[in-house]
Design a protein around this nucleic acid. Structure first.
Lengths: 227, 227
DNA sequence: ACGCTTAGCGTCATGTTGACGATAATAGCG
DNA sequence: CGCTATTATCGTCAACATGACGCTAAGCGT
């Protein structure tokens, strides 16, 4: 039996909505390989550390937040030989959906960090195979919005129906009818619950405030327009 | 920078339907750790091998089949420290949905191999953390049947609507109305296509034969009964 | 020939969704 | 203050989807 000796990293697809755009956190690599190239934040898994713990540690380093602050899940694992010039490196990617955050502080090996609109990232721009990982993360997020209440993870603790609709429109890159959306989300059991408060957002009628409800799945789902 | 040196394995949740039961392929471990314990088939990833390739190689060794013969996808990665007494081992689990197969041939390190009804496996029975991996695989398969045409992966190349319904009933452990099911699957664009042939299965009217259609998603989905 | 079973098609009542009307409540302007 | 524009909430209508179930077609066994 021959063991394959591998290094294992975690990489994070951290998504938030800022300035009406779906944004991903990128770091500017300060050291080789891929010096001065943008990449997803991440790092090596420590010897006594579970994968999720490693990812959570990196999330804390990059954003100051704990995973409970938004939604956090394992995305997929990538292990094509040669994906990392340093040697045999397998990465376990995690996806986080986060409410709007302040400007990030770069981790120790990074020359910079930045929230970038996902739509602005050109093919081949990212280091390693991070283009692929990012694409997978974006599609996962889009699919999750159909079947789960996880769009709320992009919102602050209290939000209006219009806030939530803006999340859907931004992530799905489409327009949704406010009347239909209102009926759907207020009618879907366990999706959102009224807080009792109201808020005036721009001009117009005051809107009710809601918080995330207890449901883990949407039944029936809120399906994307057919493609 | 400290690298964490890890061994990476793949583990396979191979599911098929035999004798009206959802069955999983298990191997009897012939060597430590966990000697004489049942486990999911798998093995170490070779140095120049992608993860999916490693999993496909193992699938070939265990079943003689290529992944295209059924459905095959990455399930999740498990890396809790101590999950393997041999040291730091991270496993990338893959899920395969396969049509009924002959009895398996054990791989080189196994003392036996067997298709076991998933429902017969008692908690804690499997080696490593394979109970957890199996449970995740089963749930993944159940969810996939709602949103995709992948139930057809359990069927031979040509099948009747009743064959397909039996797949759903077996995987979901429920009964489905044949009239409603027929209407749904024949009406869902790209799910199944008639071959033009018919077959007499038991007694009763001859049934039309179908093959898998080109769709990758079911729209609208065929949702499980609400839990 | 009859009874039973399975296959395929359809109806009915209910629920869901896309399109869109109407009223409520604000901001801004003249 | 009245008017316009805008946003929030509620609802209606037509089309579609689904659970329950009737009916006919086509076999097998007695």
């Amino acid at each position: 039996m021959t063991l394959s000796v591998v290094s294992v990293t975690v990489d994070l697809v951290l998504l938030t909505i800022r300035q009406a755009a779906l944004q991903v956190l990128l770091i500017r690599r300060g050291i080789p390989p891929y010096p001065d190239r943008w990449a997803l934040p991440g790092g090596f898994v420590l010897p006594d550390e579970d994968l999720g713990e490693a990812a959570a540690r990196e999330l804390r380093e990059e954003t100051g937040l704990d995973p409970q602050h938004g939604h956090f899940e394992q995305l997929a694992t990538y292990g094509t030989p040669g994906r990392d010039p340093r040697g045999r490196v397998v990465t376990v990617a995690y996806l986080a959906l986060l409410p709007d955050l302040p400007a990030p502080v770069p981790g120790s090996d990074a020359a910079g960090a930045q929230w970038r609109p996902a739509a602005d990232i050109t093919p081949g721009e990212l280091a390693f195979d991070h283009d692929r990982i990012l694409a997978d993360g974006l599609e996962r997020a889009r699919a999750k919005l159909e079947y789960t209440p996880l769009a709320t993870a992009f919102c602050p603790p209290e939000f209006t129906v219009a806030d939530l609709r803006a999340v859907y429109e931004t992530v799905w890159r489409t327009r949704l009818d406010p009347r239909n959306f209102h009926r759907k989300v207020t009618g879907a059991e366990g999706f959102i619950e009224p807080t009792g408060g109201t808020v005036i957002r721009d001009r117009g009628r005051p809107a009710q405030l809601f918080r995330r409800g207890p449901a883990t799945l949407l039944h029936p789902p809120l399906l994307r327009q057919r493609v």
